[in-house]
Design a protein around this nucleic acid. Structure first.
Lengths: 255, 255
DNA sequence: TAGTGGTCTAGACCACTTC
DNA sequence: AAGTGGTCTAGACCACTAT
């Protein structure tokens, strides 16, 4: 519990290392208070900013969370929801549930959704590419925010060609039982295949506020393309809180 | 280009916001110099730490990278490699290539691997669970670091039951053409199915140094289970640099 | 009201890079 | 040698939380 001046590591790093060890060992459990900056200043004999830099490092690692005026606490891990490929099954749709909703309810979590926008926009380049249409062609965008237990966890934008969704509930707030995919199938677009692409990155400030992310939380950007036999029917892009989702895929050994 | 005192946002935030806007607009391109702290101090009339906090915020977002003594620069995005499920195909193995190697060469990147450890260890709980053996049973662990263009990008640990790998090249440094999976199939463990699970999170300090990650880089933790008809044959856990990998999965619409 | 996190200023020293 | 990022000290003020 002291600073080693001969150690090439900075004092702040040494303090962070010691706190991290205590947290990893479990002596400080999730939800427990981390020593306050003033306590650190006294026990280690350092200035305020040095103590603060130590806490900041742990925040960046996602180990610690701070509440202004209240203190610093070992971060509680939120319940994770596992997103598997079976969420796109027809059985789920026939049960009247949207894909995400099905996973949430399996995990015993309440699910809700907010529509942020229903609009006709020029197709972004990557969307146009999948639809094989000229960039800038008008497409329908359905932007929404998904909440688990009332907490925002996903920002998702679906894109459709206009002729596919015109006159369907997909252009309405409420897409009806089974979600948008159920409506597509009713219109004769039988979904045959899905492609998902995932990437992990830091959130933008906009995403931090929209998903109420705390520092040290990453984000997964998920792109999905839903195919009928005729080709891509829906192109979807979403951003999910990294600490609340895992993704599972099972597949046969390819030839 | 000034601080608005009436703005509730802190001066550091305002500076970060303005720099971010310039970067996003493309006026500052990847590789370009970001104004130095002393320049920011002068143009905005703030103290050193304030300028520094602004740069720090952008570093945390992965937008900016600093080189000690040299300056701060808009981060160059490293080439992304896409990992698709076809990398496990028998055709790849028969071609004498390991799964990751195949993807790398498709992307035109040089590939290499370092063995960090070949050891017999008590099975971690989650490994024991997949193998359906008592926790703590001895298993063989093969720990390695994968490099693309000489840069470390993946830390991977494979676990096998002892009776599966004893006497095979899997216990050697060099597993031979086609990698470990080729050896498993030679031994009669025909691979039928794979399961992959992904999660996104902040790297630990150990991972930061092993993968030479810069601040603002996330990691993906990938778990894979390779099944033969008799059950799990290999359990694999790896950590990959989030800014260098995307993951792609394609699947039929489930019933 | 006392303690806490959050931010800022001002000044200092170091190690590194660039020229 | 000049400029840069990185860290530290010391002291200040604010807004928020807990009691």
């Amino acid at each position: 519990m002291a600073i080693d001046q001969s150690d090439p590591k900075s004092p702040a790093q040494q303090i962070a290392d010691q706190l991290r060890a205590v947290i990893r060992s479990g002596d400080l459990a999730p939800g427990d208070r981390v020593p306050s900056t003033s306590q650190l200043m006294e026990t280690y004999g350092v200035a305020y900013q040095t103590a603060r830099n130590a806490i900041d490092a742990l925040k960046g690692e996602g180990l610690v969370e701070t509440r202004k005026g209240a203190g610093a606490f070992v971060r509680r891990l939120p319940p994770m929801i596992r997103l598997g490929s079976d969420r796109y099954s027809r059985a789920v749709r026939d049960g009247g549930k949207a894909p995400f909703q099905a996973e949430a309810e399996t995990a015993g979590l309440t699910w809700s959704q907010e529509i942020l926008a229903l609009e006709t926009v020029p197709a972004p380049a990557w969307v146009a590419e999948w639809f094989d249409i000229p960039a800038g062609t008008e497409v329908f965008a359905r932007r929404r925010r998904t909440l688990l237990e009332g907490v925002p966890t996903q920002l998702g934008d679906s894109y459709y060609r206009l002729e596919v969704v015109e006159g369907t509930a997909i252009m309405q707030e409420d897409t009806g039982p089974g979600g948008g995919y159920a409506r597509l199938e009713e219109r004769g677009h039988k979904l045959t295949r899905f492609r998902e692409e995932l990437a992990s990155r830091q959130p933008t400030p906009e995403e931090v506020s929209a998903l109420r992310l705390s520092r040290g939380t990453t984000v997964v950007e998920l792109h999905r393309i839903a195919f009928s036999e005729a080709g891509p029917v829906e192109v979807f892009r979403s951003v999910l809180a990294g600490d609340r989702h895992t993704f599972a895929y099972e597949f046969e050994a390819p030839a």
